[in-house]
Structures are given as structure tokens and as C-alpha cells.
Nucleic acid binder design. Sequence first.
RNA 1: GGCCCCAUCGUCUAAUGGUCAGGACAUCACUCUUUCAAGGUGAAGAUACGGGUUCGAUUCCCGUUGGGGCUACCA
Length: 479
Amino acid sequence: MDKKVRVRIAPSPTGAIHVGLARSALYNYLFARKHGGTFILRIEDTDAARSTTESADAIIKGLGWLGITFDEGPYYQSRRMDIYKQYVDKLIKTGHAYHCYCTPERLAEERKKAEAEKRAWRYDKWCLHLTPDEKASFEAQGVKPAIRLLIPEGQTTFHDLIHGDITREHKDVDDFVAVRSNGIPTYNFVVVIDDYLMEMTHILRAVEHISNTFKQVLLYKAFGWDIPEFAHLPLILGEDKKKLSKRHGAMSLEEFRKLGYLPDAMVNFLALLGWSPGGDKEIMSRAELVDLFSIERINTSNAVFDMQKLEWMNGEYLRAPDTEKLLSAFQEWLQSQAITLPSECSADFLSKALPLIAERSRTLAEVYDSLFPYLSEDLVYDEKGVEKHFRKDPDAVKERLRLYRERLVALSEFNKETTEEALRQLIEELGIKAGLLIHPVRLAVTGRTVGPPLFDCLELLGRDRVLARLEVFGDYVEE
RNA sequence: GGCCCCAUCGUCUAAUGGUCAGGACAUCACUCUUUCAAGGUGAAGAUACGGGUUCGAUUCCCGUUGGGGCUACCA
């Protein structure tokens, strides 16, 4: 790489940040880090009607959550209008652009007509041929013109780092509006100005921009500027194989965060959606991703977002042996969801409970749910479990629970070893299988049929709560 | 409709002009086990179709089909 790498993402702040944007950001970020380059955030808010500052803030926050950080920016295009203005004037002077007085109504009508005749609609360059008198007349009527780029005859080819050469005939490219009649320039215009001024070396963005690229390349040429490298990323598709959009529901970053996905897992998963390092490696740290990433290995075909695989991968990260990290991830999650744990629920308790629970969870939300029996006294007994482990022979089970409770009362020390020993002894005396006592006890003290190994649960709960719950359970099943 | 992009198991993907087309998720068995997970073992599952080029193509070329994207005074 001869020039110092400078890349960017340029989102429009028009709604929740979804995974497609997150992945584009990630690839740009990885590419910049890998080459010691600069990663820039530019907010493309030239569409005043749809842009919101909340959305811009959400983008920054969301990417920050993923640990995708910027070296420059955010730049806001809405604050750079005077810059763009100079370049428009230049374009008019050199004859690369012209004023267009066509009303939206006329354009819409023409477009409809073309559609009815199954003709491709292109702007008919009507205003290109206006005489000075006609122009003066429009001006006198107070009609504000838009400015269109004049697309010359011929064809344009650009090289795409992922797709190779892509060519389009100019007859298929519109004389697109560069500046609206209200004076605000459009995306295709400002993106070129900014990418040039900000000295972008590589543009990595989604394939949906390929058709815009021709317009942009023509603009670079009109200005006589060097054209950056382009790499058009495959799309992320929903289960229905359509481009991700609001219809797909829980696809915003915020939603994934709420569901309890870990940023590291999210980044790992997203990296693999459209790219692979080759070989079989799938679980990769950020450092490994930076090291392994290359544009050449980005795929050409679109990828379906597989929720199940994400869940699995999140589980892998949840199960990682680093308790401290898990604890802080969980606490961070609680905070982001505005959940406060009871004060007696100490960090000490959590660091004991979390590994046991996370091992059998796939998301932090699941972790939180599994924590319930340790946070609240209002147990809800699993009805199927009650049916299975109690109702078949209630008197016998009740008696066993009573006996076990007695043993627990008598223990000099209460921990997982002693409680297990007590239970083993009891079942031997009773001549029954361990399950006949273990299952009812789990149900009695947690309300659930699933969870960490029973004696770990008992230790986590502590003697007082265990004894109380064994007693309460007896009453519960009486009814 | 026009233009463009794409095509390996259901999904994410690996690989090569000659391979038993590999892995992961999901699925199904079995195993481990106090439950649930996790783990282990195994099963099933793909080169869209048709033509070329070639001794040989899943790989290169063309076409068909299919999918996707774009087609705004949105980005």
C-alpha cells in the first residue's frame, strides 16, 4: 500500500443502526487497523427531512458498544454546505452541470408514462437545451432550478477490489440531480466532494452502491480528481433472502444488545458474514481479526443472517473461562437495560453464580432469567416439573424432602460437598436412586427443573433460603 | 421493464483443472450425566441446469434458470 490508508463509513442518520451498517463499519475498521490507517465517521445528513441527531448519536453509541472506534470525525455534511457550494459553481462553469427547471410533477408524469410503456426512464435532458430566453422566463417566474450533472456519451468502467471490472453504458446513467432546487446538494455529489477532500484511499461499502459508483466516478472525472479504490461488500440478507430492513424486526444493534449478545461475539459473527480467513478457524479475537483481515477474501455473494449461529457463537463467548470479563459484561448489560439487582446480590455472589449459569446460557438475558431463583423469593414452580417429580407419589416425595431437610439442618457446615454427602447418605438409607431426591429438591429450591448442578445451587442459596424453601414447597404442593 | 451483481449441504463457508468436495451452525442418533447445557462419537445433507474449452471441470468461457440490488430534487 503506497498511500496511507484512509477509510470511512458514511451513514445517513435516518433510523436505528442495523447489522449491515455495523458490518460495513467493522470491515472498514479492520482494514484501517490492519494497515495502520485512519478510520473516519462522516454523518451524511443532507436529507434534512429524514435525518435526526438522535439517530446520529445512536450510530456513534452503537458502534462504540461494538468497540468500533473512529480516528476522525464525526463530520456532519449538514455543516459543510458552504464547501460544497464552491464545487457546484466550478462544475457549472466547466459545463459539466446544468440548471434544471423541471417541476417534480412533470418528472413524475414522464416517469409514469415511461413505466406504462415499459420503457426505462432516464431524464430527457429537457432543460439542457433551454434557450437563454426560456431560462430568463423561468427565473422571472421565480422557479428555483436544480442542478444536474451532464453525463457525456460513452461508457464507464471502474475496478472493484471484490468484483473486478464493472462497466456501464452512459445511456443507462441518469443526468442525476447534484443540487436540489432548495440549494441542498444530494448524496451522490457530496459523497464525492468529501471523499476527495478527506483523502479517502478505499471505499468499502455495500453492493447496493454499485450503480451510484458510476455517477460518482463521472464526477471525479469531471473534477479531474484521482479515483479511490472501491470494494463493494455483499449484502446481509434476512431469512427471506431480502435485504435487511425494518421488516426484519430485531435487526438493530440496540435490539441485539437488549437480547444480551456480547459485543465480541457480535463482532466475530459479523466479520464472518461475507468474509473468511480461509481454513476452519471461526472463533477469533479482535486482534486476530485485524491480523487476518483482507479485502481479497471478502465474498462476492450475499449472506443470510443466521440467528442460530449467532446464538451459538454468543454462547461460546459466554462460556469463556474469564469470570471477571463475564461479570463486567453482565453488569454492563444490566446497566444498559436499567436493571438493578437487589443489594444483597454482591459481586462476590455473582462471580460464583455467573460461570455456573453462563455455561448453560446463550445470551445475557438468559443469564439474567436463570438468576431469578437467587434474586427473588417469589418462586414460580414449573408445573410440568411438579407433575413429574411430585404428583406421582406426593406422600413419599414429601417425606423424603422432610428427611433431607432435617439432615441439612443438622449439618455443621453447609456447602456443596456437605449437602451432597448428606443426600448420598440419605438415599442409601432409603434405598432409592439419587434422582428421586435430587429432582424434587431442585424444584423446591429453585422452582425449576433445569439449572446448575443441584449442590452448587444449594451452596449459592445458602442454608437459610434452602431450608425455608423446602418448607414452603411442602405447603405449596399440599394445595 | 431496463441496468448491474451473484450462484458449493437448510444456513455461514473452505478447497482444487484430477479431492472420499473439508469445517461450523442447525437437524437426527448414540455417549457422558443428578437436570439443563457443554463435551465426545456418528449419521444425513451441496458444487442450479445446458452447452462448450480440456485427457479431465465443481473450478475457465457462453447461455438458461434462479436469487438479489439499483432504477428519487433518499442515502
